[in-house]
Amino acid sequence: MNAKFIISAGVAALALSSNINAGEETHASRAISESGQASTHASASAAHSIVASGQVVSAAAAVPLSIGGAVLGSAGTASTAAARDSMRAPTAPIGTPLHVTDETVTVIPPNEALKKQRSLKGETI
């Protein structure tokens, strides 16, 4: 019964959408096709392709550089260690051109982070 209702609703939706904008059906069909492709190639995500290219470096952390050279805590977390390393932070007022690295950084995938040596900081044993 439910399936019949949904099929009817689908037919009605098709009819309505063709009345309103014939072009949308083409796009809908493409979207269905793309949706299927996404399932088929689930392992080849966009991020994996970038990392697999070997042209990016992993970043462990990023801390906002505020005006005047201070390093702010990131997203509500304290970052005293980063603040100590902020001597090179730019002191120019907002609007002055800034320097960015030529390197391309990316987030570290969990499986790669797990390969790194475990930090002993704070451990009791």
């Binding site: 462990a60 990023a62 902020s86 730019p90 320097h99 960015v100 690295t101 390197e103």
Partner: peptide, 15 residues
Amino acid sequence: IYSEITKSDGQKIPG
């Protein structure tokens, strides 16, 4: 956000 990024090798770079 313009940030000080720490690479996994510890080097700090702006980006």
